[in-house]
Amino acid sequence: MSGLKINWKITTLLILGTLFILFPLYLTIVIAFKTPEEMGGNLLALPESWSFDNFLTAIEVTNFYQSFFNSLIVTVASVVMAILIHSLVAYAIARNIHKKFYKFLYIYFISAMFVPFPIIMLPIVKQTSFLGMDNLLGLAFLTIVMHLALNVFIYVGYVKTIPIALEEAATIDGASTWTTFWKIIFPLMTPMHATVGILTALAAWNDFMLPLIVLSDESQYTLPLVQYAFQGQFSTNYNLAFASYLLAILPMIIVYIFAQKWIIGGVMRGSVK
């Protein structure tokens, strides 16, 4: 377009636009630090003092460390299982897509994208509880089941671009299919592992509906579910509520600040596929 000249008009517009993005976050921070007495004044003003009392209360009342830990377990377990299981499935499908069975399997898995969750919702409540899976482990399993379609789709698209000659060479050297996968293909899929890992992690960390339906024990609640469960206690104290919200979104924000280039790159890579 206009060569190297910086377009200041667009830059200004975009900077103004970020106000819409940042305003709710600003509000959250300000209210989280205020005392209930300050709420009568200007809501948007800065707090009179930056006291951490609300946060300490919120940590204690909502049992923050426990729920943070719960969220972490589910997220880590989901990501690890997604990367291991989904990449295997995608590899097997991509290399055998000419066979009827694998073609069918691919369509079968992908069609899950069109199944609305509500039809699974009610039976899954019964089933997870019947199988003793109404806990964090069950939640992690369900998370990877629900993300199977998308992740396999992303992986298959990528595996197709890996030349088959590499594997043939390995086979001639006497490597088994498993060894070929772990030694050659799995490392080559690293860019997609990042993408799948990021998408699964964000989904698992922020999910509300699945934990709401699956988890039966309050001590296993994840961070978003805790915010829901504590609405009653928060009712009379917005400052406590917002301190708790801020605590709940803070871990992701911190991760994002340090890894934003990587996260954005990962998500974009997934979308070009």
Binding site: L4, N7, T18, I21, W205, N206, P224, Q227, Y256, I264
Partner: peptide
């Protein structure tokens, strides 16, 4: 061709990393 492209892009992506609830 804008200034602060990386920062602006990162800011506009923030909502996606937050819990909808």
């Amino acid at each position: 061709n804008i200034k602060f492209r990386k920062t602006l892009r990162a800011t506009y992506f923030i909502p996606y990393i937050l819990s909808v609830l």
